[in-house]
């Protein structure tokens, strides 16, 4: 493992080349090329149906692509189940609808991957979980069940659950879209904190304030392709493509 890590240290975190994906006859991702450096924070935005969620779901193989190459942390994605699991171990994911396990307590939600994937002793798994729950400031709710928490609290637990695997990359799939306005900030604060600590992040989100503060690069997608990518300042102040301008005027306009 260590040897492998050393070899990977200077490779990019994620490399995507010539990615194409179809749902039946619908061409949802078209010739995607994307390289994510270690520690880079990327925000992906675009109208609904533009393929942005599908793109990040391909990175941990929740969606299967038909053409192209994905390399995560130096490991090329294949259809081999063991390889897929190995890649997923390095990739944490946070979903729009939290997807916490409702029959497990908050603590057990955090321990499940440590117990069954990392094969850690219970005490150690609980210690790690509590430390991470502390970081997202929800350690006092560890014994509760997801159904007893507010949406914002649940999403913070979901972030903690993903972090418990000590991933190298975090994928966020519209993490605040299902939240009430007053809860969005508590989740964004956690994400900003995470960015400060140097985590590599790919966020699909429409929170443009978040993009301005933390993103190294903003990517705009439409019709399954990357239309424009630029550092946030340039992206928001001088968008080049007409489509980008239209999109920005729509979401910032009111």
């Amino acid at each position: 493992m260590n040897q492998a890590n050393a070899a990977q240290a200077d490779s990019p975190m994620i490399e995507i080349a010539g990615l194409n994906k179809w749902y039946g006859d619908f061409h949802v991702l078209r010739d995607i090329d994307l390289t994510v450096a270690r520690g880079e924070r990327i925000v992906i935005c675009g109208p609904s149906g533009s393929g942005k969620s599908t793109l990040i779901r391909c990175i941990n193989h929740l969606e299967e692509h038909q053409e192209g190459r994905i390399v995560v942390n130096g490991m090329p994605m294949t259809r081999d189940v063991k390889r897929i699991e190995q890649i997923r171990r390095n990739v944490g994911m946070v979903f729009q609808h939290f997807n916490l396990f409702p029959h497990l307590s908050v603590l057990d939600n955090c321990c499940i991957s440590q117990t069954w994937v990392q094969k850690k002793p219970r005490a150690e798994a609980e210690r790690t979980s509590m430390e991470i729950l502390e970081r997202v400031q929800i350690a006092d709710q560890a014994r509760k069940y997801p159904g007893q928490l507010s949406g914002g609290q649940q999403q913070r637990v979901a972030i903690a659950r993903a972090l418990c695997m000590q991933p190298e990359v975090m994928l966020f799939d519209e993490p605040t879209s299902a939240l009430d306005p007053e809860m969005i900030k508590e989740v964004l604060d956690v994400m900003v904190e995470l960015a400060r600590e140097g985590m590599t992040m790919l966020c699909v989100t429409h929170e443009m304030g978040f993009a301005k503060t933390v993103a190294d690069r903003v990517i705009f997608m439409d019709q399954g392709q990357i239309i424009e990518q630029a550092p946030p300042e340039q992206f928001f102040n001088h968008p080049q493509s007409e489509r980008t301008q239209l999109f920005l005027s729509q979401i910032l306009g009111h």
Binding site: N60, R88, V91, F95, V117
Partner: peptide, 29 residues
């Protein structure tokens, strides 16, 4: 919900554990 399986996959849980620890306990209810 499909999201439960997806979340378990994203945690890199193997298929057998997903069935035993995530799907079956919820389906049995």
């Amino acid at each position: 919900p499909q999201g439960q399986v997806e979340a378990a996959k994203a945690l890199s849980l193997p298929a057998g554990i997903i069935l035993r620890k995530v799907v079956i306990p919820q389906a049995m209810r």
